[in-house]
Write a protein that binds this DNA or RNA. Structure first.
Lengths: 201, 201
DNA sequence: CAATAAACGGAGTATGCCTCCGTTTAGTCT
DNA sequence: AGACTAAACGGAGGCATACTCCGTTTATTG
């Protein structure tokens, strides 16, 4: 019963290489064609069999998560910078602007974020955690400074922004989204003499 | 060249009956299983061939539109009532509440509305027009009364609400959505001494 | 240079969308 | 009533994509 620890082999070189190739191909394929694009196409472009793709990324979500890990990292880093450089609310807005921009650049990002924003936390665990943390970094100071309501959390905000991105298309959609984001942010402001309670009909 | 008007035949009874059956089945199938459910399943449940389904509803969207015509009608009617009975903003909020409720009851509604909210206007023409009209009924008085900003249109509002519904799941999600809707509505208010211009970073 | 665990790849299975067309049938005409 | 015909029926089949399974290949190890 005391089986040897048998320290694990070094991971095979071809495995690592193929994994990288698939990510590269996925980036290319999803860039045009959106996330609808078939996974077979990704495999073909990567020059690997479909089986190999699935071994490395058992689900479409897993592929998204791996693909956008770097971008999410960047967003988190940006949040850190902004929270240091700008006053709370301004930093928050700038960050959201960057987020919307990202979604515009990398088409697939929207789908990935949508998953991160409402899927069971098992999948996309890393992405979700990272994003919530980033938003929290910006949200907390503003709340503590008394500038915004305290009952809107990072999840709420992320879902709102992604939801807005989801239904907008065509040229200039990002400006449209930001218009609506600004309305929302206005609503988050603590307004003296204007209790946040909704007008109960 | 002068072909007889040859007045059209009376529509066949089985055609009408089958159309109705398909709608009935679609309602049942989409109620559970969401809109993901296969159309083959709908046809089977309706007791008709798949060909028949497609003849009556050439696209999935066409089926949605037909399915939810009644619901959209109700929403439009409700808007008319509310705009008469309640002060502008309160009426608007109540209507949105009803909209969210609808989406909760009929799961498929969300997908149908999402289409209505951003698809080329050819499809879902009826639904889109009706909804925008309904929202306009509530939005206009509030804008003219100077209670809310004028730069948020019916499309903006519909997209916002549907977008919010899109990413929320699980028990009690509708309350969550309404919380965020209330924030947005707060942001739409014209605030004395608080210009709606965003804080440019 | 075996031995072997790991990775490969693609044929195969499953599922769903949608079309096409031979068959059936309801309404119309005499 | 019976023949006629446009319209509707239905499901086989073509196509595309998601995902699995397993016989074959290969990188590492001793």
């Amino acid at each position: 019963m005391t089986d040897q620890p048998s320290r694990p082999r070094k991971p095979r070189a071809d495995a690592i290489r193929n994994r990288e190739r698939v990510l590269e191909a996925a980036k290319a394929v999803f860039s045009r064609g959106g996330t609808e694009a078939g996974l077979e196409g990704v495999a073909r472009q990567a020059g690997v069999g479909i089986g190999t793709l699935y071994r490395h990324f058992p689900t479409r979500e897993a592929l998204y998560e791996a693909l956008y890990r770097r971008e999410v990292e960047q967003l988190a880093e940006l949040a850190r910078q902004l929270s240091a450089e700008l006053p709370p609310l301004a930093g928050l807005r700038r960050w959201i602007e960057a987020l919307v921009e990202f979604v515009g650049t990398k088409k697939g990002m929207a789908a990935a974020l949508a998953l991160a924003a409402h899927k069971p936390p098992e999948l996309m665990a890393y992405t979700s955690a990272r994003l919530y943390e980033a938003i929290g970094t910006l949200l907390r100071p503003a709340a503590e400074a008394g500038e915004i309501r305290r009952d809107i959390g990072a999840e709420d905000l992320l879902r709102t922004v992604i939801g807005l991105c989801y239904l907008h298309e065509g040229p200039g959609w990002q400006a449209q989204v930001m218009r609506l984001v600004d309305v929302f942010l206005d609503g988050m402001r603590v307004q003296p003499g204007h209790p946040p309670a909704p007008p109960r009909g």
